[in-house]
Design a protein around this nucleic acid. Structure first.
Length: 797
DNA sequence: GCATAATTCGTTTTT
DNA sequence: CGAATTATGC
């Protein structure tokens, strides 16, 4: 885990350029004509349409190297954005190799989000944040929304928080601030209160000094729009802009780029986008394939360079992929030419009885390949939906075949990791209410719903953080003694940890760069502190006492987490890293078959690729068809294209005649995509167990396909979708949940009490104020006696 | 407040 | 069919 965010701060700006003079760089060697052109066309807008396996990353990295080498710009003057951390890391590495320097000095190479975060931290105060703002993950987001729904008296059963989170995500992906959300769209949630909720949510984030992932872009856009001077600063700074996987960009990312490119007239902008419209598979999460299709209009006079020479696959594989993708209408059009030279094996298509047989069959083929000396690492199984994976896992376990599942729950998404991080976040920032919420009763401390509800209400009334609220509450008698003692202890503990955190000066863990190898590096204090926090809080113990099977693994993960902290210079730096870099190191040490979804396979390649489950409904997915119609079908087809083009030498498709979905068996129809493969590149195989005549193999090369596309509109699913769409469009009669009974609300003049006032307290009844101390009142109650309470819990009686 | 039974509900996923 | 979340009883 490289400490990118930390190291980049060091002024190594000249590191790359200074070494260039000494090196005879032959970076242009080995590039084909188009690639070289794409590298050398530095000025003006450029669209590089790079088909699968045509050397896209190579062009991108070489282009950067070229810009540096020729002195067109220095490293900090180049903005290069990717979508994933993995891609960013890879680029850094390869640029490093090309220019013979380390990754240092490319401060603006990163994901949209990490660069967005970097920009926001620099100008935080202009968007209502402090520069040490917290980046929320989806978990925190949901928690926060739940609180807001609760506060607004919206039934969370009927209007689930995750649905609203999805809507907001959607808006943010499209660059919409609360004010810009159309009433029609907002009407679809909580009887039209969505817009207010969105605004409340944003306001709450500011109070919490936090931003969610969407904000990292959206707030940048707002910043640029509202502060042209700031934007101008970056116009001057960035001489060249490069964007990877442009077909995956969404509207917000487009706006972001557009603003940054505005320093010059569009026809002169030095912006280079690289992508493949045929590999756009993220439409469902906001990607606008239109961005890439429209590039030439956005940037008039843009050069377009097509990379069509494929260095990956045999011609049969390529033929299959090209033939299939040609069925799409909205595409810019490329024709991949193989450079491999071999025709290779035919693409195998096998029909099997059910998914169990499918797994058995693929297992056998893999064992066969293994006997032929193939490496398991060079084999992958790519599925459409993750539930298909289980069958393979089970089979491979009984076979004793090594496999690895890629893209499962990520390290930083595991419960124990999030809990541990919440502890650390709360040490780092006492006002992190979401972190507080997460761990206040983890491990179990006997603080249940009622106690926490009380704390929350008090916090809401007083507009203080949960930590501060509790700090006040424990000085009163609002809480039951047991809970009060527990909370007091917890607060004290955190204060203690914070003291320890401050006690250690930063200088202590500065790494001695000149130390000879072998010198044991001192464990940074914050890793130690983390260990202490986890031990003293009882968190470690909680898992030690847990007898479930996963407990051991969780403890391991916690250790790993603490160890990984040692690579960071400060707790803050570490926390930034974990909130943005959510990917795990790929353990490629062992030889194993890879099992993953088609989506997570993008960008990878394998000698042998198995593509199971080519059945109507599963692939293409019925749901996508229902929701997005023809556009959905085209995206599914691109997904198929991505799958096919992952293979270098061997491609094996399969389909089951019967599949169990949601517990019940359904007979399946072969995928229409099978019909779209060129017959001459395909070989239909038979497992022998398929029932003659029914099987796909029985039809002598003609695929027993699927209804024509139009019939999709007749499926029940489609009609359902239509119906939903209708109901969403028309707001309909406004039904009121009946829950409009006024709650005892703070009337705003809350804290204006004086000694002698008669007040009412929900729990203790009527009483008279004896003394005032800030917002703490001492009251002599008529029935309950003398108590200390918070002013927000009483009303004038 | 917490452990256990009943119920709901089923893509794809990065940051 | 099975996970994952929610209602129920102690």
């Amino acid at each position: 885990m490289p400490a990118e965010s930390q190291r980049l701060e060091r002024p190594a700006a000249g590191a790359i350029t200074s070494q260039l003079g000494r090196r005879d760089v032959d970076y242009l060697k080995g590039l084909n004509e188009e690639q070289r052109e794409a590298v050398l066309a530095t000025d003006g807008p450029l669209l590089v349409l790079a088909g699968a396996g045509t050397g896209k990353t190579r062009v991108l990295t070489t282009r950067i190297a070229h810009i540096l080498r020729t002195g067109l710009a220095r490293a900090p003057e180049i903005l290069a954005v990717t979508f994933t951390n993995k891609a960013a890391r890879e680029m850094k590495e390869r640029i490093g190799q090309l220019v013979g320097a380390s990754i240092e000095g490319m401060p603006w190479l990163g994901t949209f989000h990490s660069i967005g975060a970097r920009l926001l931290r620099r100008h935080a105060e202009l968007v209502g944040l402090k520069s040490d703002f917290t980046i929320l993950d989806t978990d925190d987001q949901i928690r926060l929304i739940k609180q807001l729904l609760d506060a607004a008296n919206i039934d969370e059963k009927r209007w689930p928080a995750r649905v609203f989170a999805g809507m907001m995500d959607n808006w943010k992906n499209r660059g919409l601030l609360p004010a810009n959300v159309s009433a029609a769209e907002a009407g679809a949630f909580a009887n039209g209160r969505a817009q207010t909720l969105y605004a409340d949510y944003q306001a709450r984030l500011k109070v919490l000094n936090a931003a969610d992932f969407g904000d990292l872009l959206l707030e940048c856009i707002r910043l640029f729009n509202q502060h042209p001077d700031v934007l101008a600063e970056y116009h001057r700074r960035f001489k060249y802009m490069l964007v990877d996987e442009y077909q995956d960009s969404n509207v917000a990312q487009y706006m972001w780029l557009r603003l940054l490119a505005q320093g010059k007239p569009a026809s002169e902008a030095n912006i280079c986008v690289v992508g493949d419209d045929d590999q756009s598979i993220y439409g469902w999460r906001g990607a606008e394939i239109d961005n890439i299709l429209r590039f030439e209009k956005d940037f008039p006079g843009a050069r377009v360079i097509r990379l069509e020479r494929n260095y990956r696959s045999t011609s049969n594989i390529l033929k299959a992929a090209s033939h299939l993708i040609a069925h799409n209408e909205s595409r810019l059009g490329k024709t991949l030419q193989t450079d491999v030279g071999e025709k290779g094996d035919l693409v195998g298509v096998t029909s099997v009885w059910d998914s169990e047989e499918e797994a058995r069959h693929i297992g056998e083929e893999i064992e066969q390949l293994q006997r032929q000396g193939e490496n398991l690492n060079s084999i992958a199984i790519l599925v459409r939906a993750s539930y298909q994976m289980r069958e393979f896992e089970e089979r491979f376990l009984t076979l004793g075949l090594n496999y690895r599942v890629i893209g499962g729950p990520r390290f930083y998404e595991r419960r124990e990791i999030r809990d541990a991080l919440a502890y650390l976040r709360l040490v780092w920032n006492p006002n992190d209410d979401l972190a507080f919420d997460r761990i206040v009763n983890v491990p179990k401390r006997g603080l249940g719903d009622s106690t926490l509800r009380l704390v929350h209400e008090a916090a809401r009334h007083q507009s203080t953080s949960l930590t501060d609220t509790v700090r006040m509450l424990v000085q009163t008698e609002e809480l039951k003694p047991k809970q009060r003692a527990t909370l007091r202890q917890l607060i004290d503990q955190f204060d203690d940890w914070r003291r320890r955190a401050k006690a250690q000066p930063y200088g202590m863990m500065e790494v001695d760069e000149d130390a000879p190898p072998g010198v044991i590096r001192r464990t940074p204090w914050h890793a130690d502190l983390a260990r202490q926090v986890l031990d003293e809080s009882g968190y470690t113990e909680m898992w030690q006492n847990d007898k479930s099977a996963e407990a051991e693994g969780r403890l391991e993960n916690l250790k790993e987490l603490v160890n990984s902290m040692e690579e960071f210079d400060s707790l803050g730096g570490f926390l930034e890293h974990v909130s943005l870099v959510m990917d795990r190191d790929t353990g490629e040490a062992e030889d194993a078959v890879s099992i993953m979804t088609l989506h997570s396979a993008k960008g990878l390649e394998f000698d042998t690729v198995f593509l199971p489950g080519w059945e109507e409904g599963l692939f293409p997915s019925q749901r996508t068809l229902d929701e997005s119609g023809r556009a959905g079908l085209e995206e599914e087809r691109r997904l198929a294209y991505v799958g096919l083009t992952r293979a270098r030498k061997r491609l094996r498709l399969s389909l089951a005649q019967n599949r169990r979905i949601h517990g019940l068996w359904q007979s399946a129809i072969p995928s229409r995509f099978l019909d779209e493969l060129p017959a001459e590149a395909v070989e239909v195989k038979d497992t022998g167990s398929a029932y003659g005549g029914y099987g796909y193999g029985g039809r002598a090369g003609r695929f027993n396909v699927a209804d024509p596309f139009d019939s999709v509109y007749e499926t029940p699913g489609w009609r359902r979708a239509q119906a939903q769409h209708q109901s969403r469009r028309s707001p309909g009669p406004v039904t009121i949940d009946g829950d409009l009974v006024a709650r005892s609300v703070d009337d705003g003049r809350g804290s204006k009490y004086g000694v002698g006032d008669r007040v009412f307290h929900l729990k203790f009844g009527y009483g008279r104020i004896e003394a005032l101390e800030g917002n703490k009142l001492t009251i002599e109650f008529e029935k309950a006696g003398r108590k200390k309470v918070l002013d927000s819990f009483v009303q004038k009686g």
